[in-house]
Write a protein that binds this DNA or RNA. Structure first.
Length: 216
DNA sequence: GTCTATATTCCCTTTACCTCA
DNA sequence: CATGAGGTAAAGGGAATATAG
């Protein structure tokens, strides 16, 4: 929910939206020395100094940053009262405090996105490795099946029932145990029988992992 | 009860400034 | 000293929400 604060917001930030340029007088206090310091270090030219609408990049002091951080830890959004109190305490404008919180939330989000990204990357790596291992296993089994000895011992081909939507194999019809069918299959009749003949599957081209993911 | 205008806040993107290697 | 990269304060715009008339 947005705009939580607006109902009892008797305090308006002068021009409604934006304009930090017109900082309220309270902001002059603590940042005074800082501003002076910066002004001197930047060597402001005389012509743009006076009625400037140029941005002044304010660097928050360590104390200000620490207080803001503490406040952010408590609650990452502010209601108008809290904002005003904090602004007063810091000697900043309410809009500055608001903007700081917005930027802080953005930083938090960015960091979280990075963490999530790392996590997904690791998941992907693990799955890739698992896939590689399974491919190898399939290859080995196929080699085994192709040997004459295996062929002689083979039972007659059976059929599997596969769910057309999720492609899950339901159950071998002639198996000793009849597991419960896939729930979605109970009311469906479009069941596609899949041959379990080893020679049939061979017709499906199985690309090796390296073929799919060529390495440079 | 519905509509509309206004105010406020939020998020996202961009810009501008500052610091540091 | 100049410069480019990275960090971040601030601006601008759009969307959502609340409220008053």
């Amino acid at each position: 929910m947005r705009g939580v604060a607006s109902p009892n917001s008797t305090v308006s930030t002068v021009s409604g939206k934006r304009s930090l340029c017109e900082r309220d007088s309270t902001s002059a206090g603590a940042a005074d020395d800082l501003d002076l310091e910066r002004a001197s270090s930047r060597g402001l030219s005389d012509d743009e100094d006076g009625g400037d609408n140029s941005r002044k990049k304010l660097r928050l002091t360590k104390d200000q940053s620490a207080i803001l951080e503490d406040s952010f830890k408590e609650h990452n959004t502010l209601n108008p009262k809290q904002k005003l109190a904090l602004a007063k305490r810091l000697g900043l404008g309410p809009r500055q405090v608001e903007v700081w919180f917005q930027n802080r939330r953005a930083r938090t989000k960015l960091k979280q996105t990075e963490v999530d990204c790392e996590f997904l990357k690791r998941c992907c790596e693990q799955l890739t490795e698992e896939n590689r291992r399974l491919q190898k296993e399939v290859q080995e089994l196929r080699t085994l099946k192709l040997s004459p000895q295996f062929y002689m011992q083979m039972t007659p081909p059976t059929t599997l029932t596969m769910c057309p939507s999720c492609e899950r194999v339901a159950a071998p019809p002639s198996g000793p145990v009849q597991p419960k069918p896939h729930p979605s299959l109970e009311s469906r009749s479009s069941i596609r029988p899949v041959a379990n003949n080893p020679w049939v599957t061979a017709a499906v081209p199985i690309r090796s992992f390296d073929a799919i993911h060529p390495r440079s």
